[in-house]
Amino acid sequence: MTNHSNTLPILEVHDLVTSFPVKTGIFRRTTSEVQAVSSVSFTIYPGDTMGLVGESGCGKSTVARTILGLEKSKSGSILFEGKDLTKISNKEMQELRKDVQLIFQDPDASLNPRMRVKDLITEPWLIHPGIVDKKDWDQEVAKMMRLVGLNPNSAHNYPHQFSGGQRQRICIARALALRPKLLVCDEAVSALDVSVQAQILNLLQDLQNKLGLAYLFISHDLSVVRHLCNKISVMYLGKIIETGNREDIFESPTHPYTKALLSAVPDPEPWLKHDKEEIILEGDIPSPANPPNGCRFQTRCWKVQDRCKVEEPALTSRSHNNHYSACFFPIDEDSPVKKSVLIN
């Protein structure tokens, strides 16, 4: 969905900050804090798939956990259908959780190995009564399993009797049992084989078309994000450094970090001599406990100038399509990335 002129957002995150205390000494006194998420803002509309990408440790999963109330924000707001999740009671948050569901990376860790599939899918109805009448549970379980491509005859099996891809389908069925409006997928396919990844991604697209779901899709795999997401935000060291629609990010990136990420995507036609620019970043991502002054990317950026070391760039508009990046010296906005980078 690209035209939102007459549509209200389902999720609005404004200047979100999430930090964790650093405790030292015998008495474990708090001496400082790590700002895992720093002034993050984005908006998701019904039917959108918002991709959040970046290196490990950049704060992607912390954003997801904060939205779901699993971590407490330090400041900022999280508006779900206009209601600020940072200011509601635990009881209200419990009620809202049925509308926002999380799919984790590892289905093995997400599913109780002692519970049958039928019990895993019906458990949310015990926590949120009234969604499905108990007399209809068997019928609804079969419906949920068919919806995600599983055989309803296996409803009495245990998770270990399924493959990895099938277990992730069980996780999706359990999340859909509550009739959510937003699914948060935290590296939901990264633990699966490539062929199984494609099946799960196609399933998510089909479910979105059938049910009108919105997704917040968190991943480090750019080829997966390009396949599924229509809007993308790139994170680095707790901040969003570039955001835009899929075409802007993949065909005309303006932040050096985004350009470097795209250059690292494997070439789907390596036997052809593509004139593809390869960018190798030197050094490791700095510690969130001690981020560099100025631009957070300046310690690894090949375009760094003196200004970058003392002043932090703000997200600046790069086109009329809500394409923004935080860079004083953006790369050539008129030269698109070579097609060899764009993987379907």
Rank of each mutant, 00 (worst) to 15 (best):
M1W: 15
N3L: 14
N3Y: 11
L8A: 15
E12N: 14
D15H: 13
V17Y: 01
S19Y: 00
P21H: 04
V22I: 07
K23L: 10
I26Y: 05
T31R: 08
S32N: 02
S32C: 00
A36C: 07
V40G: 00
I44P: 00
Y45D: 01
Y45H: 11
L52R: 09
L52F: 02
E55N: 10
S56T: 04
C58E: 06
G59M: 00
T66V: 03
L68K: 10
S73P: 07
K74L: 00
G76Y: 03
G76N: 00
I78S: 08
I78M: 13
L85C: 02
K91R: 12
M93K: 08
M93Y: 03
M93C: 11
E95L: 15
Q101G: 03
Q101M: 09
L102Y: 03
I103K: 03
R114P: 13
M115D: 00
M115K: 09
R116F: 01
T122G: 06
T122M: 09
P124N: 09
W125N: 10
W125V: 05
W125G: 08
L126K: 15
I127K: 11
I127N: 14
V132A: 15
D133I: 07
K134L: 09
E140K: 05
A142R: 08
M145I: 13
V148L: 10
L150P: 03
N153K: 15
P159R: 12
R169W: 01
C171F: 02
R174I: 12
R174M: 05
K181T: 10
L183W: 03
L183D: 05
V189E: 06
V189T: 11
V189K: 04
A191L: 02
V194F: 08
I200A: 05
L204E: 11
N209V: 11
K210Y: 08
L211I: 00
Y215L: 04
S223I: 04
V224L: 05
R226Y: 14
C229Q: 15
S233P: 04
V234M: 09
Y236V: 01
K239C: 04
T243W: 15
T243R: 11
E247D: 15
D248Q: 07
D248R: 01
D248F: 11
I249E: 11
P253R: 00
T254C: 02
T254D: 12
L261Q: 06
S263N: 15
A264W: 05
P268I: 00
P270A: 06
K273M: 09
K276V: 12
I279H: 04
L281N: 09
D284E: 09
P288G: 01
N290K: 01
P291Y: 00
P292Q: 07
G294T: 08
R296F: 10
F297E: 06
R300S: 03
W302A: 14
W302S: 14
V304T: 14
K309M: 08
T316Y: 06
S319A: 05
N322T: 13
S325H: 10
S325F: 10
P330E: 07
I331T: 13
P336Q: 01
K338M: 12
V341W: 14
I343C: 15
